[in-house]
Every structure is written in C-alpha cells, then in structure tokens.
C-alpha cells in the first residue's frame, strides 16, 4: 500500500502536468482579453495545433518540426480570429464558437483523411537534469517532466513581464481599458489586438501540441474534450493576471489529480461526484476569496474610431 507521502507526491506531480495545456491556452487568452478581445475559439485552435504538431512529428519524426507546425497553424487560426474580430468587428463570442466548431471538425477530418487511425509518436522527450532529476522527491516533482511542461510554466513570468514591465504591456492594457484614449495617443489599437489575438492562437495551438506530442504522444478526435473552455474560464478565475491564472490552473489540476486518487484508493464516493470536484471547488474558492477585479473595460467591444 502506498504511503501518504507518496500519494501527495503523486497528486502534486499530476497537478503540475495537468495544468500544462491550460497554461499555454490561458496565457494566450489573458493577452488577448487584456487587449479587449474575447477568444472563445481556444478549443478549436488547440485541436488544430494538436493535430498539426502530431501529424508533422509523425511524418518527419521530429518533434521540433511538429512544434513549428503547431506555431504555423496557430498563427493562421489566430490571424483569422483577429481579422474577424478586429477588422470586421464581429461579435466575439459567436465568432469564437464558430472557430471552435471549425477547428473541431477540420482537425478530425484531417485526422481521418491523413492518418486514418490512432497511432503514437516519439514526441517531445522528458527532461533529464543531471543530479536534479535523480533527487528522491524533488526529482519526480519538478525535474522529470516533459519539456513542454517547463515551457508552460516559463510563459507565466514572461507574460507577466510583458504586461507589467514593457511598453507593449502598456499598449495592450490601454487597448483593453480605454482604446479611445490610447488611440488618441497614437497607439494603433488594431495592431495591438492583431498581435495579441494571433499570439493567443499560437499559444493555444502550442497547448494542443503539449498534449498531442508532449504529454500523450497520440492524436484522437476531440482529444481536448472541453479543455479550451476551461482555459478561458481560468482567465476569469485569475482576474486577467498571469499569476492568478497560474494559481487557478494549479488549483483546478490539483483537485483533478486528487479526485483520481480518491477513486484509486477506493474511497466510497461515486465516481461522478469525484469527477465533479474540481469544477465545484473552483467556484467555491472564488466565492470565498473576495473578488475585486473587473474585466478590461473594452472587453468584447470592437474599436471604432469616433
């Protein structure tokens, strides 16, 4: 029988891994929402990225080329979303749902026509740090993950830095809070939003790739299974701050890892209720922790110069 220490270790390591795809997608969504664009098509972008990465890695045997393919596809999907929401002022929620359906269908269609069946790839390898990876507890917890996991966590300080310490961050926040004032100061709202939404697409696609060639090394139709929508929810959980989003992703993932253990240990709780736990807890935590944040003032509002 496993010891409690072992179980806690398992939960922590699982949680760290599970948070990976959420972090990629949610960091992209944070940037895009901070600039005033709600992208509900994250799930579709993730699926397209997951497929592109898998397919290229499968054909070429190179995970690097796979990642590049995900970036390319994410760029296209992001640009399309940016064009529709920034240029054509389309209602963002609805066009996002459109892009979700498009990505869901197209990734599946390509999967059926180009691959035909579920198969596996080598994918991105697990990290091995000399000494560190062999540490008894810490090694397993922190130093033996897939490289995609480290990428996800590296994004958090990066996005934080960009948002809070660079002129780009200032422009992004201005575009999301008061686009008219920013515009009058010479900031091109369109350019800023194009950049964030496109980058959001790239990051979502990488999130998909972190599943298909990172953690799972397979592709299956609809493999993200609602993950992209959770990522969007986590941006709200984190009040549009990278660190808050990180905490949300970790909380959700840790509880999810915990519920897996609840079942493995055979605790007398119906599986359905165990599966429910992360969703319930996410809401409960938000109720207990008093929320002061409000969304970026111009979120979902297309910018029209007056």
């Amino acid at each position: 029988m496993e010891s409690w220490g072992n179980i806690l270790l398992g939960i922590a390591a699982s949680g760290i891994r599970l948070a990976t795809p959420y972090l990629y997608a949610a960091m992209g969504e944070t940037l895009s929402q901070r600039s005033g664009v709600l992208n509900l098509g994250v799930e579709g972008q993730m699926l397209m990225g997951a497929f592109a990465a898998f397919y290229v890695a499968y054909r070429t045997g190179s995970a690097g080329l796979g990642l590049l393919a995900a970036v390319g596809v994410g760029l296209l999907m992001g640009l399309a979303m940016a064009f529709v929401s920034v240029h054509l002022h389309a209602e963002q929620g609805i066009s996002g749902i459109g892009f979700y359906l498009f990505g869901l269908g197209l990734s599946d269609l390509l999967f059926q026509k180009l691959l035909g069946t579920v198969d596996s790839v080598q994918g991105v390898p697990d990290a091995h740090f000399p000494l560190l990876s062999d540490l008894p507890v810490l090694g397993e917890l922190f130093f033996r993950h897939n490289w995609m996991v480290y990428g996800a966590y590296a994004l958090v300080p990066l996005v934080w830095f960009v948002l809070n310490k660079t002129p780009w961050g200032l422009m992004i926040k201005a575009a999301g809070e008061n686009p008219h004032a920013a515009d009058s100061l010479g900031v091109s709202i369109a350019k800023v939003r194009y950049a964030t939404v496109t980058l959001g697409g790239v990051l979502s696609a990488l999130g998909g790739a972190s599943l298909s060639i990172g953690l799972l090394k397979i592709f299956q139709q609809n493999m993200t299974s609602g993950l992209g929508f959770i990522a969007v929810a986590l941006v709200y959980f984190g009040s549009w701050r990278p660190v808050g989003v990180l905490l949300g992703a970790l909380l959700f993932s840790l509880v999810n890892a915990l519920q897996l253990w609840v079942q493995v240990l055979g605790l007398p709780i119906p599986a359905d209720f165990a599966v429910m736990a992360p969703y319930v807890l996410t809401i409960v935590v938000l109720v207990l922790v008093v929320q002061r944040a409000r969304p970026p003032a111009a979120l979902t509002k297309p910018f029209v110069r007056e």
Binding site: G10, S14, R17, L18, P21, L211, L215, L216, I218, Q220, N222, M223, T224, S225, G226, L227, N256, A257, L260, W261, Q263, V264, L265, G266, A271, D272, V275
Partner: peptide, 20 residues
Amino acid sequence: NVNYIGSFSDTALAAEAAKT
C-alpha cells in the same frame, strides 16, 4: 484499482488516471 473518469473523450484525463 478502478478509475472511471466520467467521459468517453477526455484523453488527457485518461492518461493522467493511468499515471495515477
């Protein structure tokens, strides 16, 4: 040890259940 993950499509959770 049996783990019902509550979904027919959540490949990622199935993988994590296996890791568990």
